[in-house]
């Protein structure tokens, strides 16, 4: 289920004083089964970009192909595309409306016109996946804790069993525990055969989870690479108001104080490993 964007540009309210070029000649290919992180300053076009991936927005110029289907084509069945490409917006719990949690999660599968028993099966599975037990089934989605509500919203998209899952800042506004829960959940999706696109402001999350990181800036693809490649270009990232993960900052700091450490550690664990190695050789060298 690869997603290909070629020469995609998007303009909001063209021809008015409020004209705004949100995307400018974006070229991308997201292959199957990869975990992509998208970072970029506010207003860089991240949200506009992901809405192109399931046809919620159609490019002003250029082409979006999902599994070979051109989303701008008149014959394109967008409903079908949206089942395959699940999109979880920012603060998805603000879109809950069902009388019960079960009702709300069943909304997507029912829109797919699935038979009742299949809807039931999918709701069950989605709730299981996000870690909501049976007792939640008939409760109202209003009055849950922030993390719980967000998991219900996530289940609502998962119940459509998409093959690509796109998440816009899924941890925004959650407490550390809620964050942890959502992230470990999202991290498990590639193993289930889903591609994941994660829009995030947290360099640490992206470094920890993504295979590839895309940096958006002023509607353009600014940088693209694996986390170690990308976060080694600290100055470029800082120039556009972004940063690097805490682990990279630590390694950089130690190196500037004369430690001999290899570059490429972007997560805390990798940093710990690198420092441990360096200490070992230091200790060895001291004795020798």
């Amino acid at each position: 289920m690869p997603i290909t964007l070629s020469h995609v540009s998007y303009t909001y309210q063209p021809g008015t004083p409020y004209e705004w070029h949100a995307l400018d000649d974006v070229n991308l290919e997201i292959p199957d089964g990869e975990f992509w992180g998208i970072i970029g300053p506010t207003g860089s076009g991240k949200s506009t970009l992901i809405q192109h991936m399931n046809g919620l927005l159609k490019p002003t110029q250029g082409q979006v192909l999902v599994d070979g289907i051109d989303l701008s084509a008149r014959a394109a069945n967008l409903r079908q595309v949206r089942q395959k490409v699940g999109l979880v917006f920012q603060y998805p719990e603000y879109q809950l409306f069902g009388e019960t949690i079960h009702e709300d999660i069943a909304f997507g599968p029912r829109n797919m016109k699935l038979p009742a028993d299949e809807v039931e099966r999918r709701v069950r599975r989605a709730m299981e996946r996000v870690g909501l037990d049976e007792s939640f089934r008939d409760r109202s989605p209003f009055g849950l804790s922030g993390g719980q509500a967000r998991r219900v919203a996530l289940a609502g998209v998962l119940a459509m069993e998409p093959r690509v899952l796109i998440l816009d800042e899924p941890t925004a506004g959650l407490d550390p525990r809620g964050r942890e829960e959502i992230l470990s959940l999202v991290g498990a999706f590639p193993a289930l055969g889903m591609s994941v696109v994660l829009v995030s402001h947290s360099m640490d999350d992206v470094a920890l989870m993504a295979d590839k990181v895309l940096v958006m800036h002023r509607g353009k693809v600014h940088m693209l690479g694996t986390p170690p490649e990308l976060f080694s270009r600290r100055a470029e990232l800082e120039a556009i108001g972004l940063g690097v993960p805490a682990a990279v900052q630590l390694i950089d700091m130690l190196r500037s104080r004369g430690w001999e450490l290899p570059a490429g550690a972007v997560t805390i664990e990798q940093a710990v490993e690198a420092i441990r190695k360096s200490l070992r050789t230091k200790a060895g060298g001291g004795r020798g």
């Binding site: 809405q51 399931n54 919620l56 409903r79 949206r82 089942q83 699940g86 999109l87 917006f89 998805p92 603000y94 879109q95 809950l96 409306f97 909304f107 997507g108 829109n111 797919m112 609502g156 998209v157 459509m160």
Partner: peptide, 28 residues
């Protein structure tokens, strides 16, 4: 947009169905 991403359809169908389709928008 969020409900559309979950397969909601606000553009087609009978008037009654479209009116019903607004519940997932009005409640939130």
């Amino acid at each position: 947009r969020a409900q559309e991403a979950r397969g909601a359809d606000f553009r087609s169908g009978s008037l009654i169905n479209r009116a019903k389709g607004l519940i997932p928008v009005m409640v939130p």
